[in-house]
């Protein structure tokens, strides 16, 4: 025992906690949980799969489509429609990145190792943003390019007006959604609450506001986080929504605001 203890003294080194080291720690954590990989894979495969299958069958069944369906057909939207599923998977990934630690008690080890706390949030933010941005942008391009292949004669190209903007904006929107999940997870510290809040704001809130008086709808609805962020996801701008990049900027502001709240509460509350 004594011999091994002496040896172990020499191998520890001096170890100041830095943001870079915290990021490395979070990177190790991120890569060593199956639940994270599963959710990332669900987002990627779900979006690509839905886009490709929808594109294939739209092309295959083109002659049987009703005129109304053909009138509404959008080659970009058909191949990228899987973002609906992807936003759920990647958002939940953001939530559980934090709530998984609270649920298991890991957070106590994490905050004991990095007692200033906020670097933990920034490190998770960096890891999640890099992973989500790379994966979701690649997924968006893969879903689009493969989808166009399956659409055959009904396809469009990246060079067509606004198409490249939609493909890039889809990846960006999904990245921001992941970060929003991270902020909700940090604020609520509970997986069920985090996911419920996330789904409530992105999916339920727009549905609820449908019953508001129409004068309210015109002014309020387009500023909802989901509507603002999704304004950039269509080739033809929806006049009821904000301009594409304006909308994305508004959505990003919501995400930053949620992150600031998360950072403030993280250091104020007992762990």
């Amino acid at each position: 025992m004594t011999a091994s203890t002496e040896y172990l003294i020499s191998s520890a080194g001096s170890g100041e906690v830095t943001l870079a080291r915290t990021i490395k720690s979070e990177w190790v954590k991120f890569g060593t949980l199956w639940s994270n990989r599963l959710l990332a894979a669900t987002a990627v495969l779900g979006m690509v799969g839905i886009g490709w299958v929808a594109s294939f069958f739209t092309n295959h069944d083109w002659d049987h489509l009703r005129p109304r369906q053909i009138a509404r057909f959008d080659a970009v939207d058909t191949s990228l429609n899987g973002w609906n599923l992807a936003q759920l998977a990647i958002g939940v990934l953001g939530v559980i990145l934090v709530t998984g630690e609270y649920g298991t008690g890991m957070i106590r080890a994490t905050l004991t190792a990095v007692p200033t706390r906020r670097p933990v949030l920034w490190a998770k933010l960096v890891v999640l943003t890099v992973v989500a941005a790379v994966l979701m942008t690649a997924t968006s391009f893969t879903a689009f390019l493969g989808g166009q292949l399956f659409l055959g004669s009904h396809s469009t190209t990246l060079g067509a007006p606004n198409v490249l903007r939609v493909v890039i904006a889809t990846g960006l929107y999904l990245t921001l959604v992941a970060v929003l999940g991270l902020a909700f997870g940090t604020l609520l510290r509970n997986t069920a609450a985090g996911i419920a809040c996330f789904i409530g704001i992105l999916l339920v809130l727009p549905a609820i506001t449908d019953v508001l008086p129409s004068s309210w709808q015109d002014t309020v609805v387009k500023y909802l986080p989901s509507n603002a962020g999704q304004a950039a996801l269509t080739v033809k701008a929806d006049p009821a929504l904000l301009a594409p990049w304006t909308g994305m900027a508004v959505f990003a502001c919501y995400v930053v605001a949620a992150l600031v709240c998360a950072a403030v509460t993280l250091t104020r509350r007992d762990a």
């Binding site: 080194g13 170890g15 915290t22 639940s35 298991t104 008690g105 080890a109 004991t112």
Partner: peptide, 20 residues
């Protein structure tokens, strides 16, 4: 204070990384 979905070694690796 350990995430049960991680291996013992990876748990320690993650903590070790914070202090090099």
């Amino acid at each position: 204070s350990v995430h049960t979905g991680r291996s013992a070694r990876n748990h320690l690796r993650a903590l070790a990384a914070t202090t090099g």
